[in-house]
Design a binder for these strands. Structure first.
Length: 196
DNA sequence: TATTGGATCGCC
DNA sequence: GCGATCCAATAG
């Protein structure tokens, strides 16, 4: 309680910078079944029309429309027919970009998270974008939700992150030269980071 | 209308 | 290493 919710101007900054700065902050999900929170451990940046790894690379479509809108909204989509991914839209309206949140360290709501995940091992609860969405009850109904609202948001709890590792993004080998961009970030040595 | 493949996961 | 599972995007 008493933590500062990130405001819209945080999300308006350049995407790569926003991706780095989200590490160590806390994702908060307010759900009818309960509140869950977790420290963000791993992120990726998807930047502009040119980025062939981004859903926006082929222009605006019904699915990716939120990426073209104003910063500070959630872009949630279904992948592989069975998982969801959560992004925070960044940069000025009209410029399609977002930060994919790939892993958190669950904090509050552990019992609810374990029930949703049907797992006990604390490292396996939210280690990967699909697992994270399952753990936090994030589904497509949340696509387009305002991250400056009361349902899904990020708090700055002033945690100083340990060393940050920078690598290439996961699962984008189809993206030609863009697969080599160093746009994945995670907290060094943390067991909750997803494996490749 | 039909086909293709994916910003994944967990088990074999 | 591979199958699950389905829908958005593209081609026909």
């Amino acid at each position: 309680m008493g933590f500062v919710k990130l405001a819209r101007n945080f999300y308006e900054q350049p995407t790569v910078q926003a991706a780095r700065m989200l590490l160590g902050k806390y994702l908060v999900r307010v759900h009818p079944d309960g509140v869950t929170t977790g420290m963000i451990l791993e992120t990726e940046a998807y930047v502009g029309l040119e980025d062939k790894a981004s859903h926006a690379s082929r222009g605006r479509t019904p699915r990716n429309a939120v990426m073209f809108g104003p910063a500070g909204f959630a872009y949630v989509y279904v992948i592989y027919g069975m998982h969801h991914c959560l992004n925070a839209v960044t940069e000025p309206e009209g410029y399609p970009a977002a930060v994919l949140i790939r892993a958190v360290q669950p904090c509050e709501g552990l019992e609810l998270i374990r029930a949703r995940r049907r797992k006990q091992d604390s490292r396996m609860l939210a280690n990967g974008p699909g697992n994270l969405c399952q753990a936090f009850g994030i589904e497509r109904g949340l696509n387009g939700v305002d991250l400056c609202g009361d349902v899904l948001f990020v708090e700055d709890r002033k945690v100083s992150p340990a060393d940050i590792v920078t690598t290439t993004r996961v699962g984008v080998d189809y993206a030609g030269p863009w697969k080599d961009m160093p746009w994945r970030f995670y907290i060094a040595g943390h067991p909750g980071v997803s494996k490749r």
